[in-house]
Design a protein around this nucleic acid. Structure first.
Length: 572
RNA sequence: GCGCCCUUAGCUCAGCCGGAUAGAGCAUCGGACUUCUAAUCCGACGGUCGGGGGUUCGAAUCCCUCAGGGCGCGCCA
């Protein structure tokens, strides 16, 4: 199949070349969706001045020279309204149905490193952390589907000074008890207990500080304890990932500890090359363009005056590793907005060092903060924190509760509840732009009406129901597609836009655009569903055509939801 | 003080590579199940796009400025 916007753009470009000369063949025809036609080209108005002609005159010249599978109309100050023919739309939809990729392009393969999730083992993990995980996983799925070599990097917070007290607390508790607590997702109380002792018990405090030293020195016994702590914590993370259907595995873990042995070399190299200098006893890079309070250069500190390393050092080692060892062409950091300045300075410093060449894209997908009901950011000391697994279980329970009057057995209900509950939670994070902050709200996340995951899943369940009732298989060929009713036309037109949307989501790291597209598609299908009986169509031709449209809609919805990481139950 | 982000309908948000009458969901009100799943659909109501200025044939969109809010800014990560 062919992307309608592409066909129209090329058609307008050929018309421009024919009317005004070949130098206009590459002009952007400014194709936009239109309320008066399928699409409109706005190029006549922008070009009029350069051509020294009236906009309507330019539009007329385009219309006179254009050759597209549809009709052209000029209106207003110079809009070129483009309407595709029903026959062409039907033929393209049929091609899309026959296409395994449903019109999604295969891009020139690149190596895309995606840094996401990255929970911190030494801090509380709250609902806000779900968001980077869910958004990152959707981006990963989209990049992979577009044909790229995707490397997931789960940059766990698994190293640093807090681990001294965490390990000492593990010794106090006993290894088995500590592991049990951590695996159960009680990382918060564990951390808080350790912290309380660290603050109030001088002897513990001293042990913890000493433990940091042996940890940095990679003393075998300390490392053994560290592994016990981390393995239990990772098992809990994996429970959350499994429940959510996140594609991260242990193979994707590349935590801070992994870069520990590279830090000294990073500093030495930057210092010897004069890129980093000593300032107030600390080793700093001063990337150009960054200024602080008094207008003085802003430091990117890579070695503290006490000789210790911070996350700036780790992140530099990380970016170098991703480019030199992983051969990244593009690095996507799915990390909170609060890290914005840090990442800007990281990228600038890495470019300065030559580790991040111009041709490698480094992007920060800023994830908006999730706020408490008081409208403020979550803090470690904040009282009631909801355990992630309990949140997810509640989502499933609520989703399953809607199914009480359906005639499903308990196992089926639980299965549907799982898919719908997880879909609801994930869609809530994906359907708004990633950088907007929002107040955490159970009801909002779990609402099953409106522009939500369940609405989209429900559309697929209704389509499957049609096939089930008719004794047909959506995977078998149906058709040919014939467009009669306006709802059929609108549905076909919407379906054809799938490939372009997926490509745009990959380019702009914007899964919410895929959500918007799928919601529009589900709406278009529902209108079709209300107006165009499939099984009881007036003729066999109509029935075959509508079965084909329904099958195509099902496949696009399922594929689109899969790219978002949302499962689709067979029935609801 | 500097930097980044935000301010669109009662609420939550799209739209912001400039284009025609600014959209959707929720909420509210009124309709639609003898008809393929009503977790649905149709209709109504609802907006000085924070204020002001500029660029433009045309600005929610680009630029400047002011106000309000958030986040960050050398030894936590």
């Amino acid at each position: 199949m062919t992307d309608p916007q592409l066909v129209l753009a090329e058609g307008v470009q050929r018309a421009l070349a024919a009317a005004f000369g070949p130098e206009y063949a590459a002009e952007d025809p400014l194709i936009r969706p239109s309320q008066f036609a399928d699409y409109q080209a706005n190029v006549a108005m922008s070009l009029a001045r350069r051509l020294g002609r009236a906009p309507r005159e330019v539009a007329q010249a385009i219309a006179d020279n254009i050759d597209i599978p549809g009709t052209v109309e000029i209106s207003g100050p110079g809009f070129v309204n483009l309407t595709l023919s029903d026959g062409w739309l039907a033929a393209q939809a049929a091609e899309q149905l026959a296409d395994d990729r449903l019109g999604v392009p295969v891009e020139t393969p690149a190596t895309v490193v995606v840094d996401y999730s990255a929970p911190n083992a030494a801090k509380e993990m709250h609902v806000g952390h779900l968001r980077t995980t869910v958004v990152g996983d959707a981006l990963v799925r989209v990049q992979a589907h577009l044909g790229h070599r995707v490397i997931r990097q789960n940059h766990l917070g698994d190293w640093g000074t807090p681990f001294g007290m965490l390990i000492e607390h593990l010794l106090d508790m006993g290894e088995a008890a500590a592991v049990a607590q951590l695996e159960a997702g009680e990382g918060n109380p564990y951390y808080q207990a350790a912290r309380a002792k660290f603050d109030s018990d001088p002897a513990f405090n001293e042990r913890a500080r000493a433990r940091v030293v042996t940890l940095q020195a990679e003393d075998p016994e300390t490392m053994r304890l560290w592994h016990i702590f981390m393995n239990a914590t990772i098992r809990y993370f994996n429970k959350v990932y499994t429940e959510l259907g996140v594609t991260l595995t242990d193979d994707d873990i590349a935590g801070e500890s992994m870069y520990n042995h590279m830090l000294a070399q990073v500093c030495d190299e930057l210092e010897s090359r004069g890129i980093a200098v000593i300032s107030d006893g600390a080793l700093c890079v001063f990337p150009p363009g960054f200024t602080g309070r008094e207008g003085q250069p802003l430091p990117f500190m890579i070695r503290k005056s006490d000789g210790g390393y911070g996350y700036a050092t780790t992140d530099l080692a990380t970016i170098r590793y991703r480019i030199q060892d992983l051969k990244a062409d593009r690095i996507i950091y799915v990390i909170g907005v609060t890290q914005s300045l840090h990442l800007q300075m990281l990228f600038a410093s890495a470019r300065l060092a030559g580790w991040l060449p111009d041709e490698v894209r480094a992007e920060h997908v800023q994830i908006g903060s999730v706020l408490g009901s008081d409208g403020k950011m979550f803090k470690t000391r904040a009282g009631k924190s909801i355990k992630l697994l309990e949140l997810l279980e509640e989502a499933e329970t609520r989703a399953a509760a809607v199914l009480v009057d359906r005639d499903y057995d308990e196992a089926t209900r639980a299965e549907i509840g799982h898919a719908v509950g997880m879909g609801a939670v994930k869609y809530a994070d994906l359907s708004v732009s990633h950088d907007s902050e929002y107040v955490f709200d159970f009801d909002r996340m779990l609402a099953l009406t409106g522009n939500t995951g369940p609405y989209l899943q429900y559309a697929t369940a209704r389509i499957r129901s049609i096939f089930r009732r008719g004794g047909f298989d959506p995977a078998e060929p149906h058709g040919p597609i014939v467009i009669g009713h306006p709802a059929e036309r609108a549905l076909a037109l919407q379906l054809l836009g799938f490939g372009a949307v997926v490509a745009e989501v990959g380019e702009a790291n914007a899964p919410h655009k895929l959500c918007a597209y799928l919601f529009d598609l589900a709406s278009a299908f529902t209108t079709f569903y209300e107006n165009c009986p499939v099984l009881k169509a007036d003729s066999e031709e109509d029935r075959q055509s509508r079965l084909a449209l329904a099958a195509l809609t099902l496949r696009v919805l399922v594929q689109g939801l899969d790219l978002l990481g949302i499962e689709v139950p067979e029935r609801m």
